[in-house]
């Protein structure tokens, strides 16, 4: 049996780098969730619209970004954005765009399923009283759809946080990538990866706990 001398003191030597990596992971996750949710809402409304000019393009958009493997999307964007759009953006923003597109496509379907689960009569009753479509959506449909939307949506949020680790592939200085750099300096992969895993859990577990409570609330 191989004896291994654990030495976690190494982690503390790099604590600033690790902290920064953790913060970047949180930043990417937070921004992607915000942007992805907004995108999802927009896509959802476009898709449920009766106008074919909105409906079909958004359906195709959703389908593409749901089906495309996220890792492939991420790498492709990393190489494709500069020549396609003529702009240089950092890997950090590239990763946020990729995660937002992915979350946007998935959450659009979650929103749509929620809205569709509310009977058409609810909308009709509201419209027949002279309410606008926007008021109907905001005050009648969404509050009711919320209960159906929230569980899968929070699941998707957690998933997005986990997937931010993919950004290490395009050298975003998030937690996993920082871990890799530390290993190349310290040659202590086991300690470093253990610490990285614990930190991911530390971010996600409280959030999961909190969201569960939120789901249960009516």
């Amino acid at each position: 049996m191989i004896t291994y001398n654990w030495d976690f003191s190494i982690i503390f030597n790099y604590k600033e780098a690790i902290l920064k990596g953790t913060l970047i992971t949180i930043e990417i996750a937070f921004l992607s969730i915000i942007l992805g949710t907004i995108l999802g809402l927009i896509l959802c409304f476009l898709k449920i619209s009766k106008n074919p000019f909105f409906k079909y393009p958004s359906s195709i958009f959703i389908e593409i970004f749901r089906d495309l493997p996220l890792l492939v999307l991420l790498i492709w964007l990393f190489y494709a954005i500069p020549p396609l759009f003529g702009i240089n953006i950092s890997a950090f923003y590239t990763s946020i765009i990729a995660f937002s597109l992915n979350l946007g496509a998935f959450s659009a379907e979650i929103f749509r399923a929620g809205v569709n689960s509310i009977s058409k009569g609810q909308t009709e009753a509201s419209l027949s009283l002279g309410l606008t479509k926007f008021q109907t959506m905001k005050d009648i449909i969404f509050p009711q759809a919320r209960r159906i939307i929230i569980p899968p949506l929070t699941g998707r949020y957690i998933e997005t946080i986990k997937l931010t680790s993919l950004a290490s592939i395009i050298a975003v200085d998030e937690l996993l990538h920082v871990g890799g750099i530390i290993i190349s300096l310290s040659y202590r992969p086991l300690e470093v990866y253990t610490a990285v895993a614990v930190l991911y859990l530390a971010i996600i577990m409280p959030l999961t706990f909190f969201l569960r409570r939120f789901e249960r609330r009516k």
Binding site: G121, S126, L127, L129
Partner: peptide, 18 residues
């Protein structure tokens, strides 16, 4: 919207907002 406002419609299945 303006016209709907002046026409009342009562449905078979009530469609109250739960």
């Amino acid at each position: 919207e303006k016209v709907r406002n002046k026409i009342g419609l009562v449905f078979q299945d009530f469609h109250l907002w739960p």
